[in-house]
Amino acid sequence: MGEKKKSGRSKRDRGRNGAFLLFTAPGFFLYSFFFIMPVIMGIYYSTTDWDGITKSYNFIGFDNYLKIFRTGQFTDALFFTIKYTVLLVVFTIVFGLGIAMLLNRKIKGRTFFRGIYFIPAVLSSLTVGLIFNKICYYIIPVIGKFLHIQAISQNPLADKNLAMWVILFVNLWQGLCIPTLLFLAGLQSVPTDLYDGAALDGASAWDIFRYITVPFILPVVSVVFVLTLKGGLMVFDYIKAMTEGGPGNTTRSVAMLIYKHGFTQNKYAFAIAEAIFMGLVVAAISAVQIYFTDKKKAV
């Protein structure tokens, strides 16, 4: 068993195990107690007919889950949310990377530009939503009329074809900041001599991007992907502040639907069932994503 070396290592491991346990315990405890426990309580409520206020309620099994698809509302909201999320993720990665590459160029005033591009991140999403809500009513139509663009000569949030795009724009306006900086960080990890070498070899800009930049920033892409995915699938604040899901139900995300059922219609237990179902959908999507990125890493 190679006595000496092994015993040194296992001694270290034993010492480490204790310390690691100590490292893990506080976070694990807090998370279990203040996060998972309420979730378990929530799951229990989803099997009752609790309306969120009364002191007593009945156990009704999986009835709430069976009711989720009784009307088309959940499917509609889910499709909206998925469409929105796909667009959000794609635009975040494309524009985030694009802006990061611009900000990474050796230009004058680079620090200034970087500073400005991060400003929207420091605002609250609710405030941003409320500000844009006012802008859409007072300012966009003025611009639209001035430029004779029919589509935006009225409040674009009232247009069922435009409302989602406005929300998406506002979400990106604020949500691009952190991904952009993460990309910027990723770009700086690319060794400059690789670029110089490639330039000397006469590689095209696209080739440099494809074969040098992309491999280096792939880990960032994956982090941005997960964070944006989460943001998109749970989108609530911007919609609440700007359209409340309207016109009609054209911008109603799953989170908005849950809010409507749970908080304006007193179907609290049912709303939780919908939320849990949504969680399962998200977990499934993410599991697939993690599986593929792990596979890539392994290669």
Binding site: V39, K230, M234, V282
Partner: peptide
Amino acid sequence: LVYYFLLLGIFIPFQVKMMPLVKL
């Protein structure tokens, strides 16, 4: 398991735990 247990949290919508959290 701890890691996956933690990851799980990312995907749980806030509304599930909202009212229980208030009670807790």
